[in-house]
Design a protein around this nucleic acid. Structure first.
Lengths: 248, 248
DNA sequence: TAAATTAATTGGTATCACCAATATTGTATT
DNA sequence: AATACAATATTGGTGATACCAATTAATTTA
């Protein structure tokens, strides 16, 4: 723990406190002066440490208020934009369809076997330490890799990471992801069949259909969510009305 | 240039000096005290700026020696994979074609005007502070933005950054990028026409044709490069053979 | 009760002083 | 003259203090 520069050591001590849960994400760190005395260093060292941590995206420093711990869960996804479920699914529909079409003529038998395995895992026919969701990702990534094109792999991998982030934030997306397993199996099987036949346009169509159905599910879910929201607001205002009446 | 915190401003000033070539990669920055008086700030501000730049990987600070400029050429592209010219162009062909098709029905008249402007700049008909290469990028990015899909914008932007990196590393790619302006104008005009007509499939075809021609140019260029390489090796081994004979 | 004022806290910056690591210079030795 | 060594200057590292500005909490006031 003996770093070259003092602020390195201080920064690591702060990170330890954060990771050990003493300062959970969103919480406020003690003032610079407090930390300085606590660590037995000068205020400058603490400042430099916090500046370094801020540059790493682990802290947010608010003037006159304090230093706040940022949620480190999104560390891996920084650099990726935050996109809504619809545009993301639309983009995936386009790109993954082309990915499948490109992979179809050159996909290997080994990759085909892999895809079958993932379908079985998703359907629950085969139990595995791989979660159905992870199998879903592996299914799509295997197809992407079968294009033998690193740029395509990168793009589709990025999209999946965005999806993970979006699912964390938006309940609508999450609800769709959770219970779309009904159609998912058939659609994946259709994609697989097209790939088995080495038919590019069939693969493209099957993949597009997969995402098109997902977009429709999203639409239904978001309408449902909007309806629930309206209902909530109505009941809220009604109870407020009752309260007002009681006050009189 | 008025940042929230002083060291931000100082860091940006330092970056400007670096990017403008005053402090090329590998060179040593003036001492903290010199920079402080030069920028009219305290030494602390300079220190904090240098620490932030170090955290960003732009500087290396050696105790007792000075702050040295790191090669920032790969800074913006970190996180992006290094892909070959062929696979990159192939991926761009697929994705940008879909981007154009998606944009076609909904592109605005303002965007169309922008595209015309960029074509003029590329052809040299209009002189601008925008380089032809930058205009090329702006042309494609404007189309991407016209999809109203942030995920697509991100993807195509990433591809362009990869292209920049690839062009720096591979002379083959660079040579093609330099002198493909001959067909470029016609192809861009074809894309623009399709967009003007709000014709998705025509836009897709035109964009695909654009990249397909580029791939063919790449093929020719790489064959040429391979031929030159063979010629070089032959002449090298021949001279070595001559040398060996002389030794006997 | 609500708005306005005041006071306390917090980060931001400047300045000075001193230490430690490094680089430069000068000197002495060979 | 060339090299080795020591003195010196320069550079970054750290600490301490004071003061400013933004924010927040407490208090006062209407």
């Amino acid at each position: 723990m003996a770093e070259k520069r003092l602020y390195h050591s201080v920064a690591n001590q702060i990170l330890e406190l954060i990771d050990s849960g003493v300062f959970p994400p969103g919480s406020r760190l003690p003032g610079e002066r407090d930390l300085a005395t606590k660590f037995g260093v000068s205020r400058v060292a603490v400042r430099e440490a916090e500046i370094a941590l801020q540059a790493q995206g682990r802290l947010e420093i608010k003037v006159g208020s304090g230093a706040y711990v940022l949620d480190g869960s999104n560390q891996a996804l920084k650099g990726l934009p935050k996109v809504g479920p619809f545009e993301l699914t639309e983009a995936r529909a386009l790109f993954e369809a082309e990915s499948a079409a490109l992979a179809a003529p050159i996909i290997t038998d080994e990759a085909i076997e892999e895809l079958e395995k993932y379908i079985d895992i998703m359907s629950g026919k085969v139990k595995s330490n791989i979660s159905p969701d992870a199998a879903d990702e592996a299914f799509h990534m295997t197809i992407a890799r079968s294009t033998n094109n690193h740029a395509i792999v990168f793009v589709i991998d990025s999209m999946w990471k965005m999806r993970t982030e979006a699912a964390q934030l938006q309940k609508v997306y999450k609800s769709v992801c959770d219970k779309d397993s009904s159609h998912r199996e058939d659609e994946h099987t259709a994609i697989l069949d097209a790939l088995k036949n080495r038919d590019p346009s069939a693969a493209r169509s099957a993949m597009r259909a997969h995402f098109t159905r997902m977009i429709e599910a999203l639409l239904v879910a978001s309408e449902e969510a909007a309806y629930q929201e309206v209902k909530r607001k109505v009941s809220e205002s009604r109870s407020r009305f009752t309260l007002t009446q009681q006050l009189h």
